[in-house]
Nucleic acid binder design. Structure first.
Lengths: 400, 400
DNA sequence: ATATTTAGTCCACAACGTAGACTAATTCGG
DNA sequence: CCGAATTAGTCTACGTTGTGGACTAAATAT
């Protein structure tokens, strides 16, 4: 709140409020919207008319029968007008997802590559081709793509869209935001943060959790009360460098005994003596575990313990309601989930009545790309009036 | 934003916005307020008139001369109308502070006690007497006390005003909020959180930092962008139980190797073989250090290292801009500040361009009580219209 | 002394939400 | 099968709030 409120801002807020209520209830009549929002029927009718005209909601022909009286006409969010593109650059794949305003995934494009062997601009070129093809297909079906989000494995300057340092890719100071150039607004963000948002909007749907993204590095995204916590500079969530043993093995970050040394992907690959540059290593590890290989099981035990130690520090500091394990921890969950939960429970038993439950992510490797798209859609829901303006502007400037 | 905006809400927000701008600029004319807020001169004039009538701002007789044209009349926040009471229960003292809307401290009452030897209700009775005396004095000078805040050393259920567990006091499930009964609204909060807010509003004035409160236990309050981060249940900031060495000495929390075992007050007192129940121990430690006692210096070194280790985990997780050391760490700062900063710097050097600076709190033991009062004042600034309503209601119900 | 400049107020007006009357569409009861 | 009751949605007069520009006030510059 650092802005004066005038009539237009009041209307914009109410418009957003109505749209949000429609979304969270699935579908609602004008009458029940009036009840839910506290606005009058008159006002709700006007606002709904605006949303209908903008194509953000549609009337479901179906009228709700049942009680007495005239049946109401329900409106729900329309999936046929607005969409967003979610992109992800990871070590071994590029992913593109087109998601509509109802959060339905309309298009999936994934390309397996090995980005550690490629130059940044080549990778960006590949992604551009993939994304433009997705954009064209989406627009072909009449969708208006309002923007794109890009997930990258490492800290990012969200303002400039520049990647500071993505050690897994070997990238430093790469201006992806400027280089990608898709013709729609682009927002670049850390993969762990976007995966957390993906989990929030497309997964279990809880509003308070710490998402743990296990990859070569280990990141975390904290969602509190439905909002991402980014810290003062946006570098929060570096779970991989939380201390497990202060004098432990040296980490590539320069410190010692960081979680990454115990529970990063390479720690598992070392255990099975398999470090092929292609990251199919996880499947090999799961195969070993399914065969009951004791060495790999011991590695899981150790990693799970270390993850539990680091997470108990995290829980003490940021008090998440739930822990959600994603990335490589999702397939490994049957073997590490228990140890993690036990370690956390053991360390926190006396401090709190109940330790946060440890759950597994349901989205797999899609989480970050979906979160990236979702973040764009969220800007539409937060200010539908801005979109209507853009639409009318475009119409004014269009062919006559 | 989960509320419809009507005309009254629009006005309330603009009123708050104007008051906030007046406060942050010290004093402003209506004309410059119009420029700063983006509202018209007309609207600003009306809003300022409301604030003047409520007594929240006053016109400074002084007109700003200098340039050409008619000089403007500046308004500033009035310290003579509204005040709040800040209270603190700690192990060895009770503190009461009366603070006016300009954040000037109008009254200080402190009582040295040993609350570990007393029953909760006796302590609350002592505090009630102290607080009522302060309230009476404040009201005697014409101040309207709009509420009180209470800081206690341990996690609190803010809704009910009940202390869950204050190990330093030996309290469990004490309903302080209900028991204190001062005749004004009371808000109970964790000491570390309020000390952080105290630092925010009465100290250095940065808007992004992690405040570390060293007492018998070690708490932390995280302020990001001027707002306190409380976690999902309000238990964030338990820095004292962040892992330093996972298999280290057993902690009273049931875990092992928690920071508290290395850098809590008792760790220092053990070092100088002085564990009198009265907490004058810190002064003894400082005396030892000033004489150059090597055992105590070694204890500082070890505590500082452990604090640095735990803080580097915290920095990786929540990305604070600055670290502020308070509580017992303030007097010990000359002996531990360096080690803490070096340990943090050593562990974070590669991860970020610059590690967060480590600073010392300037407020000493007042921080929490001031933060408690400040939190109440903040509710007034956030919604001055609510106060005006209360005032006019009172007038309506008053003698005629 | 007069022109210029800036502060603040006044007044007609526009934007938005409100309240309640009114119309529409359904179920219930006879 | 028809009228009463009930609920949905629209329409109209109105209240509140911010706007824009004219107007008055009070200073400095020439």
């Amino acid at each position: 709140m650092a802005q004066a409120v005038r009539h237009d801002a009041m209307r914009a807020r109410n418009l957003a409020f109505v749209l949000r209520e429609v979304r969270s209830h699935g579908s609602l009549t004008r009458a029940s919207l009036a009840e839910v929002t506290g606005l009058t029927k008159t006002t709700v009718s006007k606002l709904v008319a605006d949303l209908l005209e903008a194509g953000l909601v549609v009337e479901t022909g179906a009228v709700r029968a049942g009680e007495r009286g005239r049946p109401g006409v329900e409106v729900r969010v329309s999936g046929d007008r607005v969409a967003a593109v979610g992109l992800e650059i990871n070590v071994d794949y590029l992913a593109v997802r087109v998601v509509d305003l109802t959060r339905r995934v309309r298009l999936r494009l994934t390309q397996a590559v090995d980005n550690r062997l490629s130059k940044p601009m080549d990778v960006i070129g590949d992604l551009r081709r993939l994304a433009r093809s997705a954009l064209a297909q989406a627009e072909g079906t009449g969708l208006l793509v309002v923007g794109a989000g890009l997930a990258v494995p490492g800290p990012v300057d969200v303002e400039s869209g520049e990647i500071h340092n993505a050690p897994n890719l070997g990238w430093r100071n790469v201006p992806v935001g400027a280089a990608l150039d898709l013709g729609v607004p682009l927002r670049v963000e850390n993969e762990a943060n976007l995966a957390a948002l993906g989990e929030l909007w497309f997964g279990a749907g809880r509003a308070d959790f710490l998402y743990v993204s296990g990859e070569i590095g280990i990141g975390a995204g904290l969602v509190v009360n439905g909002a991402l916590f980014r810290g003062s500079r946006g570098f929060a969530g570096e779970l991989g460098h939380v201390v497990v043993t202060p004098e432990g093995p040296e980490c590539r970050c320069g410190a010692r005994g960081c979680l990454e040394q115990y529970a990063g992907q390479d720690a598992f690959l070392d255990a099975v003596a398999d470090r092929s540059p292609f990251a199919h290593g996880i499947e090999a590890i799961v195969a070993h575990l399914e065969q009951g290989d004791p060495t790999t099981e011991a590695a899981c035990e150790k990693a799970g313990w270390a993850l539990g130690v680091a997470l108990s520090s995290a829980i003490n500091l940021v008090d998440p309601h739930t822990i959600v394990l994603g990335g490589i921890y999702a397939p490994l969950f049957p073997w590490i989930g228990g140890v993690v939960a036990e370690t956390i429970g053991g360390r926190l038993a006396q401090m709190r009545a109940t330790a946060p439950p440890v759950e597994v992510s349901r989205l797999g490797s899609e989480a970050a790309a979906l979160g990236a798209a979702g973040q764009v859609l969220e800007t539409v829901v937060a200010d539908p009036a801005a979109l209507s303006e853009r639409l009318t502007d475009r119409r004014d400037l269009g062919p006559r």
